[in-house]
């Protein structure tokens, strides 16, 4: 049983079914307290440095090298050069299930070649339970921070199926009051406690775009897993992603959008496209760009508070 680091979304059900443990190495970044040596994106630079420093212990590494995170490739190679057994995983831009199946087959081979497919159902059951938490959050019974913690942990299911079950079971349900229902699109915030800050302002996140993808994609066979992950919206073309966004925003009764992106991330270039497409649907839109991890900076707090005031004046 090996500890397998993943740099972005890699089907965790495949890693568990191969008898290994997935660990999303991004989860070490927000509270790392480390300043990267050289960087474009702080996420990739920090998981790179933390791994090279020995603060993240890995037996193997799977780098998402195509689709989603474009900065991960070279930082992943630096880890490979340090001696970590590394594999490069790529999402199909066109949503081809055939290409996705090929990528998953290569991943299975890297992970040892054997799969216990009974694990798929256990993972699906947990993802369903976490999706129920998301629904409770949408219906105002769980706060944004608690729901976000569970959903974002869906990338590796907390590194233990048992622990993830306990995490879901321990969530506190309590009626949430808020002033506005918002969506958080883009990269999950690198600022520790960002959702908590929003909760404190009466801004309730009812849609966390990327963490929701961690739960939405699933399957009970390699074939259905391939078909599902081929639809990973962050790796697909922007038109496909916008179609999904419009549907989710409408269903969830969203009143405003925060687009969160990271300095030097290619997703930043999508900002004007998303802004134009979603403003045209009537959604007030604010963009927040982050760089190094920290508590939410004052300048960002000011923007969010001003956004709330503007929503109130509409």
């Amino acid at each position: 049983m090996a500890i397998v680091g993943i740099t972005a979304l890699v089907p965790p059900e495949i890693v568990y079914a191969s008898g290994n443990i997935p660990v999303d190495i991004n989860n070490f970044v927000p509270r790392s307290g480390v300043v990267p040596r050289d960087k474009l994106c702080a996420w990739t630079a920090l998981w790179r440095d933390l791994t090279l420093m020995g603060r993240i212990k890995l037996d193997k590494l799977v780098v998402v090298a195509g689709g989603d995170c474009n900065n991960a490739l070279v930082d992943g190679e630096k880890i490979e050069l340090s001696g970590v057994d590394t594999h490069y995983f790529t999402y199909p831009f066109d949503g081809s299930a055939k290409i996705m199946r090929h990528e998953i087959d290569k991943l299975v081979e890297f992970l040892g070649g054997e799969l216990d497919e009974s694990v798929f159902n256990r993972v699906t059951e947990l993802k369903s339970a976490a999706t129920a938490v998301d629904s409770e959050r949408v219906s105002m019974h769980i706060n944004s921070q608690d729901a976000f913690e569970i959903m974002v942990s869906g990338s590796d299911l907390a590194g233990s199926l048992e622990d993830y079950r306990k995490m879901i079971d321990s969530v506190v349900k309590k009626r949430v009051d808020c002033d506005f229902r918002l969506a958080l699109l883009g990269t999950p915030p690198i600022y520790d406690g960002f959702h908590e800050f929003l909760d404190s302002l009466g801004l309730h996140i009812v849609y966390d775009e990327m963490p929701y993808e961690f739960l939405r994609l699933r399957g009970d066979t390699v074939k259905s897993i391939s078909e599902s992950y081929a639809d990973y919206s962050f790796a697909r073309n922007i038109t496909h992603r916008i179609k999904l966004l419009k549907s989710e925003l409408k269903q969830r009764g969203v009143e405003g959008i925060i687009h969160f992106h990271q300095f030097a991330c290619h997703h930043k270039l999508e900002d004007p496209i998303l802004r134009e497409a979603l403003c045209a649907e009537g959604y007030p839109f604010i963009t927040i760009e982050a760089d190094l991890p920290s508590k939410t900076p004052q300048q960002t707090r000011l923007r969010i508070e001003a956004f709330k005031e503007r929503l109130g004046d509409l």
Binding site: F263, C279, P284, F285, T287, E289, D291, Q299, R310, D313
Partner: peptide
């Protein structure tokens, strides 16, 4: 001194320079 704000009074949107 620290930032510049562009406020569109026709749409109620605003933008600020980043870091």
């Amino acid at each position: 001194g620290q930032d510049t704000k562009v406020i569109d009074t026709t749409t109620n949107e605003f933008r600020m320079n980043d870091r």
